[in-house]
Design a binder for these strands. Structure first.
Lengths: 219, 219
DNA sequence: CAACTATTCAAGTGATTACTTGAATATTAA
DNA sequence: TTAATATTCAAGTAATCACTTGAATAGTTG
């Protein structure tokens, strides 16, 4: 085959990955998978898609090499094919933030308090947590927490935060995190804690980024 | 709007970028643009697409925030929106290489000598070039060379290499580069030089990656 | 001004996509 | 074995996509 042929075929392969990333539902599935492996049914529930539709999207992701599967009993568990996929999603986000005006508008509309919540970088949190200076709070659903979390983090899903406020009365600063830099759960948790006079900030990114940076995790 | 609404709208925006990356012709356009800014007509010629078709693809890339335009006289010049876009393309390549069997097959079919051509990392080339230990050879078309190249590199497009072999008789090692890690021009140049007994290697990546790494360039 | 050129726009065609619905497959439990 | 369950497959529909063709637009040049 010709030189042109090789180049074009190569681009055609790269485009398969682009295609996989070209649908909002598939991106949402990838975000859930970035938290840890999950079954089709559980993903369907999380994304509110039908099971058949979810299955089809997942198969496309698999064909694009972004996820792998493992069958156990009746269930098929999907997981990301590697940490490069998290990097890929991160830079996709990054480019979108930098060059799509609509993203800026959305973020500033929904996350107005973004700057005020003083995000703390991952490295800094790691040191402070080691010194026992902060309480790390994971506000994702329990399912995602138990698939892996920041060492020592306690899990209080956002919905239960109000009821369990008494767990944070010791004056230590709280650092909350969730699924990623745009995940609102952490924003809302920090806002809620502060409204009760508890000192709180949020982690700059989420759990997948933490893991992809090679920082220690716990299960 | 609801929490769900925000998340979904955000993913819809990210998906716009995925859509832009979902077509082989658009990816090829991006690769050309990674060499430097170019007019619609010149891109149409390079990709062998019709002008109207090229224009439409470029507009899609612009709407996805990946390229920007500048009008000068009759011509509209397109260029990448930023270095993050090169990063994005790089990691797309990376994921494809790591997880798509078809890419591996293509690369090993066409670039069989890949390992034997001993790629040299960018940092190492920079040092050796500064010490005058190597001759840097840019085998891209003159148009791309003149939009920016590695400092001190000489430009001999592949087609003219045979005729100009006498320029490389001084015993210095040659390091050839072109558009990117999979660009065959540099592979073929190294193979040709070696077949004439000239010591030659290739740069690990291409010019866009060099530039994106923040290494010095020249115009 | 008119003639020329690069780019964009608009309309049409066949192919592909996302989603739904209902059936098929494979595994486990009774 | 049968019944139950998670997932996948297959077929159909409306929407979107890539590309072509020919016309419209906006600059430049004589």
């Amino acid at each position: 085959m010709s030189r042109q042929g090789f180049k074009h075929q190569l681009f055609e392969q790269f485009a398969r990955i682009g295609k996989a990333l070209s649908n909002a539902n598939r991106l949402e599935l990838l975000e859930f998978l970035a938290q840890g492996e999950r079954s089709v049914e559980s993903l369907a529930k999380a994304t509110k898609l039908t099971v058949a539709n979810t299955s089809q999207h997942l198969q496309q992701l698999r064909q694009a090499g972004l996820v792998t599967t493992r069958k156990q009993g009746l269930r098929v568990y999907y997981q990301l094919a590697g940490d490069e996929v998290i990097q890929l999603l991160g830079i996709l986000r990054n480019v979108a933030e930098g060059h799509l005006a609509e993203v800026e508008r959305l973020v500033s509309t929904y996350l107005t308090v973004k700057d005020k919540l003083e995000p703390i970088p991952a490295q800094e949190l790691l040191e402070r947590a080691r010194n026992g200076m902060v309480t790390v709070l994971d506000v994702r659903p329990e399912e995602e927490y138990s698939a892996g979390h920041v060492p020592g983090a306690i899990n209080v899903p956002l919905a239960q935060l109000e009821k369990q406020l008494d767990r944070f009365g010791d004056g230590k600063e709280i650092v909350a995190y969730c699924r990623g830099p745009h995940c609102i759960l952490a924003f809302e948790a920090v806002a809620k804690l502060r409204s009760h006079g508890i000192k709180a900030r949020r982690l700059e990114n989420g759990y997948p980024e933490w893991k992809a940076m090679g920082l220690p995790t716990e299960q």
